[in-house]
Design a binder for these strands. Structure first.
Lengths: 217, 217
DNA sequence: ACCTGAACACCGTTCAAGT
DNA sequence: ACCTGAACACCGTTCAAGT
């Protein structure tokens, strides 16, 4: 981990030290074992001090998560720009998504619990929300650019929400599926399953692109 | 909750009281807030006693989870027997799966953590594994019975593992997707999204049934 | 044998006291 | 102002003592 650089009173650097320490703890032992005393020790300050920088352990964790989402966006850009087809695009995203999901995805509910109903969202909540939203733009743009079939392109535009939800569900389901013991039941690899998933999904969307109404309740 | 019925030394009934109390606590406040002292109070015994019935909180939780999986199988049977087509089958499963996932699904890793490597699986671990496995039979049978297209039926049989993984991923992704705030981003309902998912999946499988090789790395 | 509840270890969080 | 670390509340778990 990066060396401690903060001095007494340098709040900016100290805050960064805490985040760096927390990141290291999380990577090493997972969320379950993440605890303030270890973080404080790694950052070379007292547990009490952590609370002058973050209101709670949850808020500290949510900050890490927001950072990670922002990093994902940076990782995603080159994939979106260079993918030669939608299958490659999805596989690239799936590869980037998995390691993040293993560390953070399971506990999405942690930060959503931060929200107090009927109150203005905090700056942190807005940061999280934006980080999530910002991911869609590049991906959506790339998907649109890569769909040779005009019927498919039209589907993307007219039913963007539904198509994105589908992709998101497959991505999450995939990551979740391979974050436990379940793959042991069939022995498929993450990579192969991701490929199978996107092929099936694309074939399905292609077929549905011909149908005028997709969902009628 | 059911009344306490156990007497001093009636280990069978007492164990059931603990499970009943734990189930009630879980339903009321979620896993996060599940705690031994509350369970003991509800079951009208001391915290220490719980540990003469269950080795740990995790084991108690895993037992509840195994029970819930077994209940799911019972709920699933009539759906599998009566569904007129695959879409209805999937929707029925999705409806049953969601409430279970909200309470238990998030923490699959909890029980998988029970396993000590290179050791014989415990009776509880076997129970969990079997409960999971047993779900596939009826579902698979129904899917096979309902596929009019012989090419699709052949796909099911020859690539059962892959098809099941796909369905499982969609089901989990769907439940996960609707267990947080994410649906707020697009406003679709669980029901509608499940329908869209299975239609797309089926159309995709149908298309792929024509292709000889599905996954080649 | 079965059960109790005080006690221990651990952890999130606070706050009076230090610099 | 910023930081410390003892202290508090809470919780999983144990165990000597009770019945």
């Amino acid at each position: 981990m990066t060396a401690i650089r903060s001095k007494w009173g340098d709040r900016e650097a100290r805050r960064e030290d805490i985040l760096t320490a927390a990141r290291a703890c999380l990577a090493e032992q997972g969320l379950q074992a993440l605890n303030i005393r270890d973080i404080a020790r790694l950052a070379q300050l007292s547990p009490g001090t952590v609370y002058t920088y973050f209101a709670s352990k949850e808020e500290l964790y949510a900050t890490l998560y927001a950072e990670r989402l922002e990093l994902l966006l940076e990782e995603l850009r080159p994939v979106c720009d260079s993918a030669p087809d939608v299958e490659t695009l999805f596989l690239g995203i799936a590869r980037l998504y998995w390691p993040m999901y293993r560390l953070y995805g399971r506990e999405l509910n942690v930060w959503s619990g931060l929200r107090r109903k009927e109150q203005e969202p905090t700056a942190l909540e807005l940061r999280l929300l934006n980080a999530s939203r910002n991911l869609f733009g590049p991906v959506f743009g790339a998907a649109l650019r890569l769909s040779a079939d005009p019927a498919l392109a039209r589907l993307y535009q007219e039913r963007a929400g539904e198509v994105m939800a589908l992709c998101w569900i497959c991505l999450t389901g995939l990551a979740e599926h391979f974050s436990g013991d379940r793959p042991l039941l069939h022995g498929l690899s993450y990579e192969d399953t991701a490929r199978l998933t996107i092929r099936t999904l694309m074939a399905g969307l292609q077929a549905l692109a011909a149908t005028p109404v997709i969902v009628e309740s």
